[in-house]
Amino acid sequence: MDLLALADFTLVARHGGFGKAARAAGRPKATLSRRVAELEASLNLRLFERGARVLKLTEEGRALFERAGALLTELEETAAAIASGGDRVRGRLRISAPLLFSQIAMGKLAAGFVLKHPEVRLEVTTEDRTVDMIEEGFDLVIRVNPDPDEGLVGRAFLHDRLVVVASPDLARPTDGMTVPAVLRGGSDRTAWMVRTPAGRETIEVEPILGLSSLVMIRDAVRAGVGAGRLPVSLVSHDLAAGRLIHWGDVDAPDIVLWTLYPTRRLLSARVSAFLNHLKQAFPDGTPDELASFIAG
């Protein structure tokens, strides 16, 4: 197999088109088109579906891109490391992270990482949707309680739990009374199941405010508008200071943050370095560690 043609194929696949790839590489579009056609002929496979305006990988093309792209990247990094005389962490690192974790921790984490590794160009995109790592060019994603994915492997690096909290000025309901509640989004939930030292308890709630961000919910709960369900790491300092009161732990599975990356991709030095950076920041992965990191 012609490795140069394979490299041209991965270049086109990564950029999503011959024109974009040609502009990015400073090479003629016709040359890239010819090289990819030659690769398809040698493999007797169609790697792209060519429409009038859209270029899309076939199933075989996607499989080849996932494997060959990773191997070629590793070869380039190895050659660069040898040429520079060492295993320095360098190059571009793209990470996708969820909104709340980005708001409260990623700025500080990212700054610390680039101070350690100044030759890395770190790019963090904040979004809660499930991204396609290969198609969208991410090296690492951080997700909350992700669904199993045979195409990805990962590590759990943080655990958290939901608690019901309220301002000290808001009376805790008794005898089936309802309490005003601040909810995420447009939820119409009317009851919360919580665990307390006395056992399980149902808190009847009346939704009065819907907000899309947990940080906004915390601020509204602090202001005394109503009770809220929030990660304990986000409110532990408010609880310690008496600004909020703990009504109980939400009767639900823990919140677990994972780092995910493709199984078939050789783990780059950049990804390994960032995973080690997370491990140093959260060695035990507890809610208290995240709370201290946020406050520090």
Rank of each mutant, 00 (worst) to 15 (best):
G210L: 11
V54E: 03
R270G: 04
G112R: 01
L45Q: 11
V12T: 04
L278P: 06
R161S: 07
S212P: 14
H117K: 13
E123D: 15
P98E: 13
L183W: 05
V205P: 15
L43I: 11
A252D: 00
L43R: 12
V114R: 05
A110L: 10
L71G: 08
P287D: 08
V163Y: 11
A30N: 13
L158W: 10
A13S: 12
L75H: 08
R143G: 02
R264E: 08
G112I: 05
G26S: 02
E201A: 15
S272V: 05
A70E: 01
R121L: 13
L55R: 06
E77T: 11
A68F: 10
V205K: 13
D149L: 01
A223Q: 15
L109N: 03
A80Q: 08
T178L: 12
S213F: 11
F113P: 05
D219M: 06
A30H: 09
N145R: 07
L109Q: 00
S42V: 04
I82F: 08
S42M: 07
R94I: 06
A220C: 10
I255M: 03
R218M: 07
G296F: 08
S292G: 10
V205Y: 14
D139S: 14
S96N: 15
I217D: 05
K20I: 07
W192I: 11
H277L: 02
M1H: 05
W247E: 03
R90C: 02
P118N: 13
F157L: 00
E49Q: 01
E74A: 15
P168R: 09
T125W: 12
W247A: 04
G199N: 15
P98W: 15
A37W: 04
V89D: 04
A295V: 08
L230A: 06
V194T: 08
G26C: 01
M1L: 08
E123I: 14
K56L: 00
D132A: 04
L152Y: 07
P197E: 06
G210C: 14
R90E: 02
R155L: 14
G107A: 12
T202N: 14
A52P: 00
L239F: 00
F282P: 03
V194A: 12
